[in-house]
Nucleic acid binder design. Sequence first.
DNA 1: ACTATTTGTGTTTTTTTTACACAAATATAA
DNA 2: TTATATTTGTGTAAAAAAAACACAAATAGT
Lengths: 224, 224
Amino acid sequence: MKDQIRLTVDSVVFGYQNAELFILLIKRKYAPYKNDWALPGGFVLYNESLEDAVYRELKEETGIEVNYLEQLYTFGNLDRDPRGHVVSTSYFALVSPKSFTLNPTTDAVEAEWFSTKDLPKLAFDHEKIITLAMKRLQSKVIYEPLGFELLNKKFPFSDLEKLYTTILGRSIDRRNFRKKFLSLNVLDELKEKVSLGAGRPANLFKFNPERYKKLKEEGIIFEI
Amino acid sequence: MKDQIRLTVDSVVFGYQNAELFILLIKRKYAPYKNDWALPGGFVLYNESLEDAVYRELKEETGIEVNYLEQLYTFGNLDRDPRGHVVSTSYFALVSPKSFTLNPTTDAVEAEWFSTKDLPKLAFDHEKIITLAMKRLQSKVIYEPLGFELLNKKFPFSDLEKLYTTILGRSIDRRNFRKKFLSLNVLDELKEKVSLGAGRPANLFKFNPERYKKLKEEGIIFEI
DNA sequence: ACTATTTGTGTTTTTTTTACACAAATATAA
DNA sequence: TTATATTTGTGTAAAAAAAACACAAATAGT
């Protein structure tokens, strides 16, 4: 029983708020890495699919509901877990702002959002997993409008713009960005406006998933 | 012991010859799927890394030496293996033409190359894995010069061109393709020429891995 | 009513991509 | 040995896409 490969899942859950990217971490209550921060995750049960395990662990440990989930990579190095041969399939997930405030009632586990710019010391090889997840997020937003999963249903265009600058870590030309994004026809401009502090009120937009699905089926890729 | 998740690796090994893409398959000797064709692979041993398992299985089952190896995806559906809960991490590999002729001495296992256009009925969910591998290959060759792993060290430019048309399944403009590829500066033009049947003799080229590595480090992506 | 702040918009320049045809060098057949 | 078929090698012009760039409109706060 000891000489058995065990399988875990680990999730890199991204949240976005105030032009900052966050990752959801939990504090480990037991050894190894007791009291260190780690990615939510745990052992896959017998007759449980990988994704089911991810959803179960996220629910148990953080109570959060994810908006988008994608497999990242499977780590099988022998030295990654002091408990023995533990293989981990990692996932990356996006949550919308309304799920951002954690529900601490769900469990006794300590869960917290950490800015990607200010991560604590992490258990296992979780730093490596996070690094990979961030690279994947960066490369994905460029050719898939994943960003919406991190925004509210209705949002001013500037939100999208800020999200992209945050994820990509560089400034983008507002006019060209807007032109290009709108030309994709995956955004519906609403008639509502919203005023956020000073400045001209912004039009609200909505992502149109059908339009996007169609675009994707036609093999049309975009590139921001 | 029965109620234990088991972990396998499966490899989609690509070979290229005469403007055709091939995949290496083995004939299963035991149930389940006895006598069906399947991807080379098998159970990961305790204290064996995933890649080690891939190399071991490939050696045991096919005797082949791969040139490039990359993780593809981990399949964890509960219905994918009649033997129970078996999770498989799949890899995709490329071999050079000199490894194309199989060495049948290596084992009693039947191994054979199959054209990607003419695959037999496959065991497990291996057809699904192959489909994914082909998509990955197509999308990768566009922004990484992986193709070289499928060609000889020295090759006429037309080989590269044919390889791309084969993998992408569409014709490409010879002049533009050559122009673009050469502008990347990852090919060294040799002084040797080679005559292949009729027609003007072709200059030979060589891939320059250092140049490519540098290009990659500088974050320069190309796109064919 | 003045100032600061954010949104919204069009044109020009530059770069990249695409389309396209013929001469050079060889093998083969007559 | 000559003619024919076959493959390699090459440049330019047109079209499309990307990048650069600045100011008016609408609001909040003072």
